[in-house]
């Protein structure tokens, strides 16, 4: 198809159109967040940062940010820890029932998130656990676990056991082997898992709306609540900040991972 010039041009054009479709709306939100007018819409009256300043002084939004950051960080630590352990078992060992275990590990994303949210909420309420931060955290952990397992497994497959065997045969004890060989080799995988679970948690709204206690808001639920009133330029500014965070994080992470990998090869 490539050699028929017309076909390829059509494909290229379609790709550009799809890119515009994907990114233009978000670009408009970011543009509007710098609008100095008091309405969060067109026409643009002038450029200003007043809505970002306003954001900073809005207690509800600052609190939502704190909640989201703490929740994301805890989720990513717990989810990555248990996810990495499980991935090591899946990649390193053969055992009876492996297929079933593999399905169980990704089950939380095979089930529609609404159903997962309802089941967890009702079960824990039945056990008299009220809607609370721990419930929210448990929900985020179970929902992000499959992503961590998939991402980390994919990267662990590339680490060959021979490296560890070599270290052992050269006289390293198991702990030294883990610290000096396995861990550095695994680090990009662990980092990827942490970043992935953090962003998913930071972004989640479907389950969060079910699990969050009254009065507690994460950034997405805060945006959702604000949307019900009207589009204020504050929302646009909040959106801009959120896009910057969730895009900058993985980019930094990827760059960091590449640096690590390069340094390791250099050794």
């Amino acid at each position: 198809m490539k050699d028929t010039g017309l076909g390829w041009s059509t494909i290229r054009l379609a790709t550009i159109v799809v890119c515009l479709f994907m990114f233009a709306p978000v670009a408009v939100v970011m543009l509007l967040s710098f609008n100095s007018s008091q309405f969060g819409s067109f026409p643009m009256e002038g450029l200003s940062l007043r809505w970002f300043v306003e954001l900073w002084h809005n207690d509800a939004i600052v609190r939502a940010f704190q909640t989201s950051l703490v929740l994301g960080a805890l989720t990513s630590m717990i989810s990555t820890t248990i996810g990495v352990l499980a991935s090591m078992a899946m990649v390193r060992y053969d055992f009876p029932g492996k297929r079933l275990v593999s399905t169980a590990l990704v089950a939380p994303i095979l089930v529609p998130e609404v159903v997962l949210a309802v089941a967890l909420l009702l079960f824990l309420q039945f056990l008299s656990v009220p809607k609370s931060f721990p419930l929210l955290l448990a929900g985020h952990v179970i929902f992000t676990l499959p992503f961590v397992v998939l991402v980390v497994q994919a990267r662990l497959v590339g680490i060959r056991r021979e490296y560890e065997d070599a270290a052992r045969s050269l006289g390293a004890n198991p702990l030294q082997t883990f610290r000096e060989v396995t861990l550095p080799l695994m680090l990009p995988a662990v980092l990827a898992g942490m970043l992935f679970s953090f962003t998913i948690s930071f972004d989640d709204i479907t389950g969060t709306l079910f699990w969050k206690p009254g009065g507690v808001e994460t950034v997405p639920t805060q945006i959702f609540a604000m949307l019900r009133n009207s589009i204020s330029p504050e929302i646009n500014a909040l959106g801009t900040v959120m896009v910057l965070i969730t895009v900058a994080l993985p980019l930094t992470g990827a760059a960091l991972a590449r640096r690590l990998a390069a340094r390791m090869r250099g050794r």
Binding site: L85, A89, L105
Partner: peptide, 26 residues
């Protein structure tokens, strides 16, 4: 070999407690 099961315990416990049992419960 019990090692894989030791590694899997936290994840499988989480899936059982937070997904399988709640799903049966509803």
């Amino acid at each position: 070999d019990r090692r894989p099961w030791v590694l899997l315990t936290p994840a499988l416990t989480a899936v059982t407690l937070l997904l399988v049992i709640p799903a049966c419960f509803i």
